[in-house]
Amino acid sequence: MISNILSIAGTDPTGGAGIQADLKTFSALGTYGMSVITAVVAQNTTGVSSFVTLEPDFVGAQIDAVFEDVRVDAVKIGMVPTAAIASVIAGRLRRHGARNIVLDPVMVAKSGDHLLQPDAVAVIRDRLLPLCSVVTPNLPEAAVLLDAEPDWSLAEMHVRLRELARFGSEAVLLKGGHLGGRDSVDLLLSGGRVSAYSQPRVATRNDHGTGCTLSAALAALLPSMPLEAATQKAKRYLTGALAAADRLDVGHGHGPVHHFHALWTSHEAHSARALAPAD
């Protein structure tokens, strides 16, 4: 049975992050994607110029429309720009008994632009995190949640993991991409046990939407496998998308990762053969 995965997030008109990246990821991993929009964002590969938040009641109405008609196997939450929207999302997900909830606490865009109001942090931390199967902050996002400095070592990440777990999510995946180094190491705390997931760091400027893509991949995979296996597969998928990102030519800034890197390889080969001159 094909899983139905819901993304609750903001938009990206250039397609590299947000709802658009989530839907691409869901499709690339063989699941059916659905979306609830929290904010319409004017952004491209060079930055965010502005965004408009939707009315909280309308966000709730979108969530109701999906759950009242469709079996939802997992939920990915991205941009939650206001406290009111965060409250509505938490209330609706609890009412509908949502499961396999993955929260990517999107707070700052790759360009450094802030994507939520300060009072939203407390509601995300106090009301949304306790509902989550896993929360996936990077180091700056974890620093905001903990009101701490983001300049951490790998050893310090182990300490911060347990502090983040106190907010009530079943598991925490703390991403260490900002640490630098040859490998990109993420730490997963689940069931009281810490596991490290490492992949070689990919040298590319085209890394827009990496957080959205990883969390969306986790949501797509969770209905069919344990969290540890889903984390390993999601990280491998993202690494492949980063490695193939330079095959795309999108924008003048941080371009998107290649969500369909595994699918388009065979398609491109087929197209080349079809266009080749006959003997």
Rank of each mutant, 00 (worst) to 15 (best):
I2Q: 04
S3T: 11
L6R: 02
S7W: 07
A9D: 06
G10C: 11
T14N: 10
K24A: 05
S27K: 11
A28I: 05
L29V: 03
T31G: 01
V36T: 00
A39H: 03
N44W: 01
V48E: 05
F51C: 03
L54H: 11
L54Q: 01
G60Y: 00
Q62D: 06
V66D: 05
F67G: 07
F67H: 05
V70Y: 07
V72T: 14
D73N: 10
D73E: 13
K76N: 08
M79Q: 10
V80P: 02
P81Y: 01
I85S: 03
A86F: 03
V88Q: 02
V88E: 06
I89W: 02
R92D: 07
R94M: 02
R95V: 01
R95N: 05
D104Y: 05
V106L: 04
V106T: 09
V108P: 14
A109C: 13
K110N: 10
G112R: 01
D113L: 04
D113I: 07
L116Y: 12
Q117V: 02
V134N: 14
V134M: 12
T136K: 08
E141P: 08
E141A: 05
A142L: 10
D147E: 15
E149F: 09
E156Q: 15
H158A: 14
R160G: 09
L161C: 00
L164E: 11
G168Y: 14
A171S: 14
V172H: 13
G177H: 04
G180M: 12
G181Y: 11
G181R: 14
V185C: 12
V185K: 07
L187M: 09
L189V: 12
G191W: 15
G192R: 12
V194F: 08
V194I: 15
S195Y: 02
Y197N: 08
S198T: 15
Q199L: 08
Q199E: 14
R201W: 13
V202Q: 15
T213N: 06
A219D: 03
M225E: 15
P226D: 12
P226H: 09
L227F: 12
E228G: 01
K233M: 07
A244Q: 02
D246H: 11
R247I: 08
D249G: 05
D249A: 15
G253C: 11
H254I: 04
G255I: 04
V257G: 03
H258Q: 07
A262H: 11
L263P: 10
T265Q: 15
H267Y: 15
E268K: 15
A276P: 13
P277I: 11
A278D: 12
D279T: 13
